[in-house]
Design a protein around this nucleic acid. Structure first.
Lengths: 165, 165
DNA sequence: ATTGATATGTTATAATATAACATTTATTGT
DNA sequence: ACAATAAATGTTATATTATAACATATCAAT
């Protein structure tokens, strides 16, 4: 048996995104409660904005969306919230895009593997033990011990292939 | 038979780095000649500076090293050279560090897999077909076709483990 | 030599991220 | 409830990474 999960699948273009959003928020709520952490208004708001998009979201776009019709928030406001959300595994940074995505399953080990569609920018997240084990084993052959990883795979999702992209 | 290469191993702390540098430069020379491309003084200089370090190098550090004792070069000078070197596979960008490393084997397919030591910042590069195939196969199960990848593994090299880091 | 293509120089600015310190809000112990 | 403490957020400034746009220089082939 291999523990290989699809943490976030590619969404069909017609899916009801409010569902993922609600589910992600309530998972974050309960996880924070368990861990004795505070999902403050700001952190919650940022998490909503990250989940609210089908695509990886830029920090400064979040910043722009945060205005309480008063003055625009300053960068540290967003980066601190993102740091918290990343630390708790609610959000991941896509290094190759400098952008952030929601994590479908906060419970899982921190680093997922991301499939990024160059057609529609959709992202799927895997947590695949086969991949992780193979990489760890190859690394170990060189005497290297793995602590963490950044795995981002660029390509085309099924929908975009059909569209001829 | 599996085509799994170590493009750049971890260097023993005592190795003669001038050798890799010289070898990298002559490979770049000949590859450019074959491809009808110009390894200009600037591009060559940047390639030397990237190879000259055991660690991934920052673009602005290259910039600082470029001064012809006259005025400091401007960013596009370096970024354009890096773009060329990356395109031809002589240099890779480490996305998780925003830094650049020399590629041991320009002939290989563009994207390697990088082991990055958090102790000494050394980087090894693999071009491992087993890893690539496994990822491609996992992706295909979701209907995703792989075009490229960013694989960066953080951990500890053998030397740093011995030092108790 | 002239022309067209390629590469580099130069100036300005965009995009991404953090440092440092002030203020506010929540939590805890009394 | 209140003070003391801790945690989070606000605010200002600045660091870091990267690109756009246009001018000039160099190279390559006729």
């Amino acid at each position: 048996m291999s523990n290989s999960y699809i943490l976030s699948p590619f969404k069909s273009s017609s899916h009801t995104h409010a569902h993922c959003l609600g589910s992600a928020l309530s998972k974050a709520e309960s996880t924070c409660a368990e861990r004795g952490l505070r999902l403050t208004r700001l952190r919650r708001r940022v998490l909503e904005l990250v989940w609210g998009s089908h695509e990886p979201v830029k920090a400064y776009d979040i910043l722009d969306s945060l205005h309480d019709n008063s003055r625009r928030a300053a960068p540290p406001t967003v980066y601190r919230a993102l740091d918290f959300l990343r630390q708790e595994g609610f959000v991941h940074k896509i290094e190759s895009l400098n952008a952030y995505v929601g994590c479908g399953e906060p419970g899982h080990s921190n680093a997922g593997q991301f499939l990024i569609c160059s057609g529609c920018s959709a992202v799927a997240e895997l947590d695949d033990v086969d991949i992780i084990n193979m990489i760890a084993s190859k690394a170990r052959q060189l005497g290297f011990v793995v602590q963490d990883h950044t795995i981002e795979v660029q390509g085309l999702c099924a929908e975009c292939q059909e569209k001829g992209l």
